[in-house]
């Protein structure tokens, strides 16, 4: 009986501790997600809250932490931040909506230029007919004709 009680208590205790640890870890990962998703507005250019070393960033981190602890979601806090300071402080550019064009275009640029390159290379290649005629052996009749022409030329000279 006693052993069972101890076992059950310790089981419940460890479950509770794990839950606390997991929720803390989840809060930390949420905070990190937030801090890497927006730029600091201190005057530095394009430094996320995680990277910026100024006091403004420290203040923002504290504010984010408090709001997360109060139960607000990452999306809510992020949206508020961007509404206050402007979309230029958004450090994420997900490949969706209009930004999808930005992600697709580099591939299109490479393919288009690649197409032009292939077309140019094909155009630059030796014409097949000319290449074949160059490679084709001279027939015996042609050789005889050339020899006869040469002989005639020598005699005329």
């Amino acid at each position: 009986m006693k052993i069972r009680t101890v076992f059950l208590t310790s089981l419940m205790l460890s479950a509770a501790l794990t839950t606390v640890a997991l929720s803390q870890e989840s809060a930390e990962s949420k905070l990190e997600e937030l801090m890497t998703s927006v730029y600091c507005h201190c005057g530095c250019v394009k430094e996320t809250i995680e990277v910026c070393v100024c006091n403004t960033a420290v203040g923002i981190e504290g504010n984010f932490r408090a709001r997360l602890n109060a139960g607000e979601t990452v999306e809510q806090i992020r949206a508020d931040y961007l509404e206050t300071y402007g979309p230029q402080f958004n450090a994420l550019m997900p490949a969706e909506g209009i930004n999808l064009v930005a992600y697709i275009a580099p591939g299109v640029i490479l393919v288009l230029i690649g197409g032009v390159v292939i077309a140019v290379l094909q155009k630059m290649r030796k014409p097949k007919v000319a290449a074949e005629s160059q490679a084709a052996p001279i027939s015996d009749t042609a050789v005889k004709q050339i020899e006869a022409d040469l002989e005639k030329y020598k005699q005329e000279k």
Binding site: Y39, K46, P87, Q88, F89, N90, A91, L92, M93, I98, N99, A102, Y103
Partner: peptide, 10 residues
């Protein structure tokens, strides 16, 4: 009408 900020990761 919205100025995107292109991150290093892009």
């Amino acid at each position: 009408g919205e100025k995107a900020s292109v991150p290093e990761a892009f």
